[in-house]
Simulated assay, not measured.
Amino acid sequence: MQFTSTFFALFATVAFTVAQPPAPGALNFDTLYDNPKGTLGSTACSADVGILKGHTTFGSIPNFPHIAGSFLIEGFNSTRCGACYELLYNRADGKQVVIPFTIINTAPAPSFVSSLQGVTDLTGLNRDQFPGDAVISFKEVPSIDCGF
């Protein structure tokens, strides 16, 4: 009986996560997140717990360089550390690009701050073309989408 209730609770969580509509946000970059040897010890998600347990560097995160700080992480050891969010960007050519990012640090609301490579992969813009804050949409997705 416990298996059945656990299964339905998990199914409801996944169904809710997938069903939620994207929310508006902003994206910027910090080249700090481009360093594969950068340590999680320098972030709000440094407690070595939850889904990030055993990951000590940015490069050890399965979907590096698609990592980001986010306003969704309230502070040290947030329960959202390691959560996976799809970031959606509408490029000038009309193409919508969607990439899952693992959140590992705090950022000002309503922003995500990623590696320069992550921003380039999502927007198609290089450092010189980047406008400052890119308008994005985001939604939480299952951690498997980020390689966990």
Rank of each mutant, 00 (worst) to 15 (best):
1 M>A: 11
4 T>P: 06
7 F>T: 15
7 F>H: 13
8 F>S: 15
8 F>T: 14
10 L>W: 14
10 L>S: 15
15 A>G: 09
18 V>Q: 12
19 A>P: 06
20 Q>F: 07
25 G>H: 09
25 G>V: 10
27 L>G: 10
28 N>K: 07
29 F>Y: 14
31 T>W: 03
31 T>C: 00
33 Y>C: 02
35 N>R: 03
37 K>C: 02
38 G>M: 01
42 S>E: 12
42 S>D: 13
43 T>F: 07
43 T>I: 04
45 C>E: 02
46 S>L: 07
46 S>Y: 10
47 A>V: 11
50 G>Y: 05
51 I>N: 10
53 K>M: 04
55 H>R: 15
56 T>M: 02
58 F>E: 03
58 F>R: 04
61 I>P: 00
62 P>E: 03
62 P>T: 09
62 P>R: 01
64 F>I: 00
65 P>I: 00
67 I>H: 02
67 I>Q: 01
68 A>Y: 00
70 S>G: 12
70 S>C: 11
71 F>M: 11
71 F>G: 11
73 I>K: 08
73 I>M: 03
74 E>W: 08
77 N>M: 08
78 S>L: 10
79 T>G: 14
80 R>M: 14
82 G>A: 00
82 G>R: 02
83 A>R: 02
84 C>R: 01
85 Y>I: 03
86 E>N: 14
89 Y>G: 02
90 N>L: 15
93 D>I: 06
94 G>R: 02
96 Q>G: 03
96 Q>K: 13
97 V>P: 09
97 V>N: 13
99 I>F: 04
100 P>E: 06
101 F>N: 00
102 T>E: 00
104 I>S: 05
105 N>G: 07
106 T>E: 13
107 A>Q: 11
108 P>V: 14
108 P>E: 14
109 A>F: 11
109 A>E: 09
110 P>R: 03
110 P>Y: 02
112 F>P: 04
115 S>H: 02
116 L>T: 10
118 G>D: 01
118 G>F: 04
120 T>N: 12
123 T>V: 05
123 T>S: 05
124 G>F: 04
124 G>T: 02
125 L>E: 07
126 N>V: 12
126 N>C: 07
129 Q>G: 07
130 F>C: 10
131 P>H: 07
131 P>A: 06
134 A>N: 01
135 V>I: 09
135 V>Q: 12
138 F>Q: 09
139 K>T: 15
140 E>C: 00
140 E>K: 12
141 V>W: 06
141 V>Y: 05
143 S>V: 12
145 D>A: 13
146 C>T: 07
